[in-house]
Nucleic acid binder design. Structure first.
Lengths: 226, 226
DNA sequence: CGTAAAATTGAGCTGTCTCAATCAATGTGG
DNA sequence: CCACATTGATTGAGACAGCTCAATTTTACG
């Protein structure tokens, strides 16, 4: 999964040179994780920026009574959040969805690299803007869209991201999300998510099985999206 | 309103020197606006970063069928969004809530100033992080909190921000939001917002009248918040 | 093979919406 | 300074999207 997104950019920048001298410290060891593992807890203080190199994870906020809201899904190659460049504290938790691994990049060195390299700076600025844009879309989903619209949009959003990563083959792609993840991301209950997905399946739009998502009628699905 | 937030920082940095030479262009003229005016439309391309100097505004996303989701309220002294430092296109619209005015700061010059001044950089990074944090909280509100919780939190959030601006006097503050704004920010309908606010009033927690918000039992209100 | 996690389904229930009417406040032109 | 027009607040009756709870089946995995 080394070839993807920021992770590859960072590694390719010569920031990681296991054998060489000065730069060796910028990357902490590759840290593997299991499905359902809590990678970082809400309010954790971090001196480095973790990047998911392999596997899926989610950022989430938890209320004191246990309710959980997933803020975003983290796909292979994605940084947890660019916010950590400017702030020590995470304000959400990170839950692993599948097994995988992450690497952590030292904040100070990453900042230095960012100021030194325009390419790096732009890449990070872009990542920041995407984060914010995605958050604003989710706000709108939760505030003003129906359950069918929310779920369709979530599926299509994942689909488009997977496509960019080259992980879509034909009309199918690996898709490790459980219905509980979809529920916690869309502000619905599992029971209801199940019913809506059932309807989409009945309608011949999609098929989810064996950890794979298949979209049979993407045009129709997009139309459900408004 | 010159003394507040980023606006003052920018002006104080000598970025605006109406009489002087080189820097005079950094600020476009002060632009006054009316209540209910659309300041910027969704997807508008901007070469400058507007800062609300006076009055209240809101950023919002609109769906094709007219549904509106308010993403954030902009109080006096606040920049529309730091995202514009790195991207030309606004992805939401800005609606004025009260009469007021804004100033626009040239992007290129602002970026230069940011790189030149650590203070400025930190201030902007802080503004960015607050934006993102606020968005994540709103996502959680909309996805996982009840209508009473959402409304209480909105009121308290405004209250805390107003307090920082020194705009709270005793247990009361100017509060120009209409119920429709509260509805569009919390993902509810005006009718329902009205009922919940009625309950809060009955309970002796708050009073909203004459464009002013009065909080009579802030502890109890915070407890509704979870 | 046994156990835990995930998916599915059904029968109510309820929070919030829709629609519609009324009333209050604010602003505007004459 | 009044009459009208517009915007905003309030209220009620009925409807429904999505929830709760609970049972059952399927799938994954040590």
């Amino acid at each position: 999964m080394r070839g993807l997104g920021l992770c590859s950019l960072l590694l390719d920048q010569g920031l990681e040179q296991p054998q060489a001298g000065a730069h060796a410290a910028i990357t902490q060891a590759r840290r593997p994780f299991e499905a359902r593992e809590l990678l970082f807890h809400q309010h954790e203080s971090l001196d480095s920026l973790p990047v998911i190199c392999d596997g899926w994870a989610a950022s989430a906020l938890r209320l004191s009574d246990g309710r959980r809201q997933i803020l975003s899904f983290l796909l292979p190659g994605e940084m947890i959040t660019t916010g950590l460049l400017f702030e020590q504290h995470l304000h959400f938790s990170i839950d692993a969805i599948t097994p995988g691994c992450y690497r952590s990049f030292d904040r100070a060195q990453l900042r230095a690299a960012m100021f030194a390299s325009p390419t790096m700076f732009d890449k990070i600025a872009l990542a920041y803007n995407e984060e914010k844009h995605r958050a604003d879309q989710l706000i709108t989903d939760l505030g003003r869209r129906t359950s069918t619209e929310r779920i369709s949009r979530l599926l299509l959003d994942c689909w488009d991201r997977l496509e960019k990563l080259g992980l879509v083959e034909g009309n199918s792609a690996e898709f490790p999300l459980r219905q509980i993840h979809i529920a916690d991301a869309t502000g619905l209950t599992v029971a209801h998510v199940n019913k809506i997905i059932g309807q989409l399946r009945e309608g011949g739009l999609i098929e989810i099985s064996d950890r794979a998502l298949q979209i049979n009628d993407i045009a129709k699905l997009r139309r459900l999206t408004i």
